[in-house]
Structures are given as structure tokens and as C-alpha cells.
Design a protein around this nucleic acid. Structure first.
Lengths: 338, 338
DNA sequence: TTGAAAGCGTTACCAA
DNA sequence: TTGGTAACGCTTTCAA
């Protein structure tokens, strides 16, 4: 069978404990012994059994990352940054799971992470409505720390790291107001969730600064923040001959949906209508018309979440840090003065 | 501490074995006992320890999936299909890892998967050159089966599931020849790797059918199959005033890079130059000019790889199945008769 | 600096 | 149908 610690011990005529100690680089073992052990381990093709190790220590060397949608490069990049940083800097591995924007799935994932005895969990929240996230607290019963990334659930108190969405939305709307637009539609999910209501606050702030009243009927709610729903919502607006100066969305993929609907109805962008997205993922720059958007520093966001998680793993879950990263308005061709 | 099987046994005054049997739905235990055990387990908040379970059974309930690039929605979709199918149909979990198109990283991932004692591994190969993949065979020493998805390494014999790339490329090139194009450039990685040379074979077949000689200097090699390198290669071609009818690429992201370079040099597409991608990921349809491409049935590909893997897990690694899924040419606006 | 042995939570075999 | 017990491969405590 596979070579294990006891095999190395037998081969070297020393005890299992010494081998274990040596393999883990403890300096209480003689330097020569240590080297010898490591060499023979390599020679014999020893591969540590993470399961046994985890069982003995009652926790694994993995942290779990929950993503709502892995087909969106926004989360793909997030996954990349989180796992690279976790591995390079903290020497832990990352295991991913995809919630598909479904609270039930998210719950199952958490149960599974508990079973796997992950050392910590980072959650990228689902972006649609769900009132009860208490299942997340199960993690605490197992002393598993968790932090949020990209947003957070208001009913769960823990560290979070995200872009300052309110500020980003504020800058974008201010810019559109500067261009002379007034009828600015906003396509997003339920205003109950953080990613939406923070953006709405930014929108309102920009309007408020100029004493322009906000018409909340311009906030259009989509069930899911994807291409199809943004496309459908835009068609609806066009067909009902709504008076619009601009449409902004909560992510770039939705902006693509808006573009598609406009193209099909021969609406010229940006001449007749300005369109803007959010996130600055690659295809906002390569779309039919390069899209004005708001850049998020995903790398910074990722590091914030990882750092705070490991901080909590060291000092306990009751930590209420927050990392809020400044966004950057990216102006492209999809927006213009009327 | 966390509730475990022995706690349930104690509470119910029965043995650990019975509890374990009941929890695993074995019908040798009395139906009532079984229900009782399950109920109390739930009541006590029991969460099975996957580590202990894996140790006892000497394998975990996870399969490992290696992706070369998680920021590409092509692989994001693949990950989604593989994990959903694995979970729903086989009741195993999927753990992802990202090789970043780097053989060293891939090797490390495999070592880690071995440590985690995954039940099986599915590898989506890196698309650039690497002569030695023998580290993959380490899996066999641990009786861990593996299959390939989307492509395969020629030096490793095992089951693979992929789209018929040769056929897809053949159809695309045939279509371009039909449009009257002759100077068809192909941007890809090294012709040593399967994803490239299968496509080249399709290209050659289309030319061969019409007795048109193939000029292999039209195959441009990029180190990595991404936006930047395709952009750079196209610029190179444009600047050197190459006589071109069409540029095709090995994936849609590269086609976007081509588009970008052409736009910057005021080259009209498709009037002056036809461009085509491959994969049919979402942004080929929403690009500046919607891109002609070849659709891959990712769901079918994913299922093939998963099915064969579980087949091997049952019947042994020496299995040489292959699933080759038929592609579909998707014609959009980026290609036209000159 | 090293060794012996207990313990982590589960499964699986054999007996009852 | 149930119970007792060894075993999985590692860490860790205590003693030497």
C-alpha cells in the first residue's frame, strides 16, 4: 500500500514520532536526522495523508470559498486572487463551491464545508433576496471562522471586504448628471440586498447634491443579475416607450443585455441613450460599444477578505473588521452628452 | 465538542456500529432504529466528519477537477457542468484547482489531490507546450483514477472527453474557403498540443479537399491562448502588411484580441478581413462585431468525462474510452465574402 | 533529542 | 439485527 510515516520509521529504524516531527520541520529534532528523514521520505515517494492529519489536528489545511456564479469572470478573477493569495501567503489550499445564487445550495455547501472541517470560509454572497441566512452561524458551532467578500448579509455580523459600491455608483451617476441626463434607469436586484441598496444610496447622493428629486420607479428589479433579465427589462422599457436618458446596471453582463436590446430596436448608443455597467470585467471593454463602467480592485478586495479571515482564525470570530476599497470610474464610448 | 457518532450511540444506548450503519442507510438495521438514529442525529446537530470517514475508507468523497484558467467563462461553464453532474448523479463533491496553464502548478495540484485522497481526478489540460506529464502517473500509485476533459496529453493514456476539434475546424475553414478566402491565418499555441494540432488537421483537410496547398507559415504560434497575445500577433501581422483574407483563432477571447487590433488600425470587419473564434462563449455573441465561432457542447463533454471517470473508479484505470462530441458552426457577422 | 502510546471519528469485520 | 473492537495514518503528550 501507499507509503506512510511508519514505513519511513521502519526503514530508518527510528520512531514514528521522530519522523512526524522531522517532516513538519520542528527544530527539536536533530538537523541531520531531519534531513535524513526528509530525503528518505522523498525517495520512498511519501505523500502525506491530509485526511489523517486533519483528523488528528481536528481541522484541515483548506479554506472554503463560496461563489454565486463561476461562469462570470468577475467571480473567476476573485477565485483566482483568493486562492493564489491564500496559498502563497498563508500556505493553505482553497476549495471552491458554487451556490448558483441559491440559498439552499449555499446552505448545503456550508454543511459540506463543516464535514470537511475546513479551517475557514469566505463567502461571496448571492445577490438576490433571502431573508434568513442563519444557517451560516452553524459554522460557529464548529469553531470555523468566516468572512464575506464583495458584499455581506446584513443579518450576519462578521468581517467583510468589498469595493465601496456607494461611492462607485455616486461617481457614475454624478458623471451622468454632468452630461445632462436626468431620466436615469437603474437595473438591479432587490433593494433589500447590499449590492443593490448601496448603489442606490450612491445614486441618491448624486441626485441629492443637486437637489434633484429621485424617482424610485426608475429602479427596476430583476430577479437575477444576468444578461437575460437585463435584456428583458430593457425591452420592456423600450416597448413601453419610456422616456430615458440613460440605463445603468449593477454589473457589466447586464449592460451587455441592455446593449443587445437596444441594438435590436435600433436605438443608437450613446447618441440616443447612454448605457453603463459595473465591475469592469473584460467584456465591458470589448462589447459592441465599449462600456462605461466602474472598476473594482478585485485583488485588494480578495486580500482583505483573506487577511481578515486568518486574523479571525488566530484571534477568534468576534471581529468586526471591514475593508472598503475605493472604486474607479472608467469612461468609455457607451455614455455621452445627449 | 462537536457531536459525533459515539455521542448519538450513548444518548440512545446503542452501539456505535449501529449508529454508523443507520446513518449510512444500510437496510440491515431495523427500520425503526434507523429512523430513530437519524432523528436524534438531526436533533443533536450531528455533522459527519468527512476526514475521519475518508481515513477509515481510505478515500474521500471528493473528485478533483483541474482547470487551466478560471477567469475564462469556457472553463467556468465546464466547472459548473462537471460539479453539478458529479454531485447530482454520483453524489460526490468536486474540488477545483487552477493550474494557470503552468505544468509546475499542475504537478503541485496533483500532489495535493493525492494528499486529500480524492476519489478521482479530471484534468482539463493546459494548452501550451510541455513534454513531460509523467507526474500525472503518480495518481496510479495511489489507485486514483483520472480522465481528461476538453483535450488530452498524448503521453498519458487514459479516457478523454472532448469536442471533435478537427471537425469543428474543418467546418469553419471549409466555410471560409466557400466565401472565397484563401489567405487564412490561424492564431494558436504550439502545434505540439492536441487543441492546436487537431484544429490544424481540420484546416488541412478543408484545404486538401480542394487541392489547395497549405502554407504552414500561416499558423502563428502564441505562447498562451489569451487576449493579449492574439492582440499582439494581429498587430504584428497588420504592421508587416501581410496579405490576409481571414484570421481564425483557437478560442473566442483571442478573437476579441484580433478584433481590438483591427479596430485600432481601422480595418473593417468583415469587409476587409473575416475573423472567427472558437468555443462560442458568451462574449463572442456580444463583441464589437458578433463573432463567427464553433460551438462546443460543454455539458455533453463534461458528462462524458465524469461518466468515464466513475466507470474507471469501478472497473480500474486501464480503460481507454473516448467521447468525441460533434461541434456546430455558428455563423455571425464577423465573416463575409470579400 | 528520541520513543511509546493514546487519541482523533469513522468504518468494517467478526461474534453474538 | 446489533455490539465489540481493530484499524485507518497522523499528531501530541509524557517519559526516557
Amino acid at each position: 500500500m501507499n507509503v506512510k510515516i511508519s514505513d519511513i520509521a521502519k526503514a530508518l529504524n527510528i520512531s514514528k514520532s521522530t519522523v512526524s516531527l522531522a517532516l513538519n520541520d520542528k527544530d527539536i529534532v536533530n538537523a541531520e536526522t531531519r534531513q535524513l528523514v526528509k530525503d528518505t521520505a522523498k525517495k520512498m515517494g511519501y505523500a502525506p495523508n491530509a485526511l489523517a492529519k486533519g483528523l488528528a489536528k481536528n481541522k484541515s489545511n483548506n479554506i472554503g470559498l463560496i461563489l454565486p456564479d463561476i461562469t462570470n469572470p468577475y467571480y473567476g478573477n476573485l477565485a483566482k486572487y483568493v486562492s493564489e493569495y491564500t496559498e502563497d501567503y498563508y500556505n493553505y489550499n482553497t476549495i471552491f463551491a458554487v451556490s448558483n445564487d441559491n440559498p439552499q445550495t449555499e446552505k448545503k455547501i456550508i454543511e459540506n464545508f463543516i464535514s470537511e472541517r475546513v479551517a475557514g470560509v469566505i463567502i461571496a454572497p448571492i445577490t438576490n433576496k433571502c431573508k434568513d441566512h442563519s444557517y451560516i452561524k452553524n459554522l460557529e458551532r464548529y469553531n470555523i471562522c468566516y468572512s464575506f467578500v464583495t458584499a455581506y448579509y446584513t443579518d450576519i455580523k462578521t468581517a467583510y471586504s468589498m469595493s465601496d459600491l456607494e461611492e462607485g455608483s455616486y461617481q457614475l451617476v454624478k458623471y451622468l448628471l454632468d452630461l445632462g441626463h436626468r431620466n436615469i434607469y437603474f437595473l438591479a436586484t432587490s433593494s433589500d440586498v447590499v449590492p443593490t441598496y448601496t448603489r442606490i444610496r450612491g445614486y441618491e447622493k448624486a441626485f441629492g447634491e443637486r437637489n434633484i428629486p429621485v424617482d424610485s420607479s426608475k429602479f427596476i428589479e430583476c430577479k437575477i443579475a444576468n444578461f437575460e433579465q437585463a435584456y428583458a427589462a430593457t425591452q420592456q422599457l423600450i416597448v413601453s416607450k419610456t422616456n430615458m436618458d440613460a440605463i445603468i446596471t449593477m454589473n457589466d453582463i447586464m449592460a451587455l443585455g441592455v446593449l443587445r436590446a437596444c441594438t435590436e430596436h435600433d436605438i443608437n448608443i450613446p447618441e440616443t441613450l447612454s448605457v453603463a455597467g459595473y465591475d469592469n470585467v473584460i467584456y465591458s471593454s470589448v462589447a459592441t460599444i465599449p462600456i462605461t463602467t466602474v472598476h473594482q480592485d478585485l485583488q485588494g478586495i480578495s486580500r482583505g477578505a483573506v487577511d481578515m479571515l486568518f486574523d479571525m482564525m488566530k484571534n477568534g470570530q468576534d471581529y468586526e473588521g471591514a475593508v472598503l476599497i475605493q472604486p474607479e470610474l472608467i469612461i468609455r464610448r457607451s455614455t455621452a452628452r445627449r
